[in-house]
Write a protein that binds this DNA or RNA. Structure first.
Lengths: 123, 123
DNA sequence: TATTGACTTCGAGTGGACTCCAAATGCTAC
DNA sequence: GTAGCATTTGGAGTCCACTCGAAGTCAATA
């Protein structure tokens, strides 16, 4: 697959994909003889994985570390540590999000009240 | 309250609080005659609100708009629209977060397996 | 053969959200 | 009154994660 196809498949700009590859998030992308990227399944898998992680706000730095460890043997524990730490971050973020959404719901219902009343007043 | 006290109370740097005030996120902070900020309850309330929203990732721009509308009458519908839109964003983010956490859980349990096996092999 | 358009690299530029700095002023303690 | 610390302003600097531009290569088409 060309970078354009991958870009469309995962809804990421080609620039972003090249950037991810450059900094080590998408390892070993195969090339044709002329140097043009020719993504195979493994590379697509990495693109999809990175997109998912970034979409949830996992830091690029942590992903760089994880991907680098992935290609060294005996680093399973270290890789797991990264995932566990990132999971904890996401858990925290999840709680923030829930609290804030409740607060927004409360405020929204408050505005609903107000708007309902001002409707009534008009009629 | 001085900015330092507010900063400690809400665990935000004084610079951040000044920045928020400057861009319009914390309106009408009272001053003493010498020009030094003297936060009252209302201002603290805004600080706390903004901290909560920012902590969940609500964009500064949306908050600026909301705060500005807050001091104009008859803008209830517009204010509500902002909150509804931001809530939708957070909902989306919540779903990303949940998907990604499940994926991390799966990967973590996979590493647990691997590490358990390599423990056994050693003994 | 000339143009069009996708691809390449490298480095620079951007946008969002802070974060820091300099210079001035003010409060408190010695 | 002067040392030392907090505060003020305005503007500059930083960090992260892209995003864009320039200059070049290559393949297909008019």
């Amino acid at each position: 697959m060309t970078i354009k196809e991958v870009s469309e498949k995962y809804d990421l700009s080609a620039d972003t994909i090249r950037y991810y590859e450059r900094i080590g998030l998408i390892p070993h992308v195969p090339r044709k003889e002329n140097g043009i990227r020719d993504f195979d399944e493994a590379s697509c898998g990495w693109v999809e994985f990175i997109k998912c992680m970034r979409g949830a706000g996992v830091q690029v730095e942590a992903l760089i570390d994880y991907v680098a460890l992935f290609f060294q043997e005996g680093t399973e524990a270290a890789r797991k540590d990264i995932l566990v730490e990132q999971r904890a971050r996401l858990q925290e973020q999840l709680e923030n999000l829930q609290t804030t959404m409740q607060r927004l719901d409360y405020k929204i219902s408050h505005y609903d009240e107000i708007l309902k009343c001002s409707e009534k007043l008009k009629s």
